[in-house]
Write a protein that binds this DNA or RNA. Structure first.
Lengths: 120, 120
DNA sequence: CCGTATCCAAGTAGATACTG
DNA sequence: CAGTATCTACTTGGATACGG
């Protein structure tokens, strides 16, 4: 491949962007359809109120997620993927697929490495 | 897609694994062929000696990179991708491609968001 | 040349409490 | 129900120095 430097920088930026603790989980659930704030919170085990807010705000800022607030009492806010966000699900699914297929190999490699390291 | 929960967890694990500051850069350069430690260090601007060691050790542990040390003076250590590591470059390239195509849209979305936020 | 250890600054995320 | 602010613990990564 030509121009590894530039390709890597672009890739590194995306990875850095979505590589935090919660972003892929949020995207994954939104890829199934529109969800309310609390619906997401309940479907993503372990996420705090604060982190869900921050994660959604970041995705909204990047144009990957659309936010729609209804001026009702109590408030109701819906989130869904934008077309740009949906276009990201393809590449992510490819990576998820790789993860599923190669997890055993990874775990085996880790175990073998740790066994060798323990022999010191 | 069925089973979003499980797919996301697998995906989240890979992203967490390769989502640190240097891993994709190292993989990108190794995808071009075998390199010595210092060759990598000089090709990856900004990486510290320590972080390159840690990054390579992590990749080696997961079976993505192979390490070959020559008992010479001075020492010589070569790193290259394993077949497993090479299999990861496909999905990563898809993501890099997405990054290249959609960077302008991302930056535009960010600018628009920040402009709206500044209107408070 | 390559690897490791120590120290430390900065970033990240959880808990909690409060607001509209 | 959704969002914000504050405080704090933990993790990450850079600088530096030393060892094989």
């Amino acid at each position: 491949m030509e121009n590894v430097e530039a390709e890597c920088r672009g890739l590194a930026e995306v990875i850095a962007r979505i590589g935090d603790k919660w972003t892929v989980m949020v995207c994954g659930h939104l890829s199934e359809g529109t969800h309310r704030f609390n619906a997401l919170k309940h479907r993503i085990p372990g996420i705090s109120h604060r982190m869900l807010t921050i994660t959604l705000r970041g995705l909204e800022r990047d144009g990957l997620v659309a936010r729609k607030a209804y001026a009702t009492v109590p408030p109701k806010v819906e989130y869904c993927l934008t077309p740009l966000g949906q276009s990201l699900t393809g590449p992510l699914a490819a990576l998820a697929s790789w993860a599923r297929e190669n997890r055993p190999a990874l775990e085996q490699a880790r175990a073998a490495f740790d066994r060798r390291a323990a022999q010191d």
